[in-house]
Simulated scan of single mutants.
Amino acid sequence: MTDCPANAAPMEGALTETVMGMLRIYLRPRDKAPGRGGWFGGRRPLYRELILQAKEAGIVNAIAHHTQFGFSNHGRVEDMGGEVLNPNLTICVELVANRTVLEHFCRTHGTLLAGKVILFAPIELWR
């Protein structure tokens, strides 16, 4: 507790750490998962498909971060725009799990991930 600020309240309970991994996949909201067309194309957005597949794969956490301004994979700088969502503005799908689970996910879904910027970082899960 020597690293705590002088005015901090004492901590109760034990803190355990587990080394995990975080995967970030950068894509566009308009990217679609393969599938059957239907009304208006009928295919699910790729970021939603990746999150549903992550749930089936036992991933601990899977979320999509929308951005307001930026670029990915050497593309154009995009802006959120006015009243209409920009379908080319980067979105980030973040997955948290053990490294082996994340590696398996990438191998299994390689065709969905082709051409996407994918980053991995080791992280600590605290409980």
Rank of each mutant, 00 (worst) to 15 (best):
T2E: 15
D3G: 09
C4S: 10
A6I: 02
N7T: 10
A9P: 07
P10W: 02
M11R: 06
T16A: 13
E17Y: 13
E17D: 11
T18V: 11
M20N: 08
M20E: 09
G21M: 05
R24L: 06
I25F: 06
I25R: 01
I25S: 02
Y26A: 03
L27W: 00
L27F: 01
R28N: 04
R30P: 00
D31E: 09
K32D: 08
K32S: 08
G37M: 05
G37Y: 07
G37R: 02
F40Y: 14
F40E: 14
G41Q: 02
G41C: 04
G41P: 04
G42Q: 01
R43Y: 07
R43N: 05
R44K: 15
L46W: 07
E49G: 02
E49R: 11
E49F: 05
L50S: 04
I51A: 09
I51Y: 01
A54S: 10
A54H: 05
A54I: 05
A57F: 08
A57H: 08
G58A: 09
I59Q: 02
N61R: 09
A62G: 15
I63L: 13
I63T: 15
H66S: 13
H66R: 12
G70N: 06
S72H: 14
N73H: 14
N73I: 04
H74M: 03
G75L: 04
G75Q: 11
R76L: 10
R76H: 11
G81I: 02
G81E: 08
G82T: 05
G82C: 03
P87K: 02
T90R: 10
T90H: 06
C92M: 14
V93P: 00
E94V: 09
R99A: 13
R99P: 02
V101Q: 14
V101N: 09
F105E: 09
F105K: 03
R107G: 12
H109N: 10
H109F: 04
G110R: 11
T111P: 03
T111W: 10
L119E: 15
W126V: 12
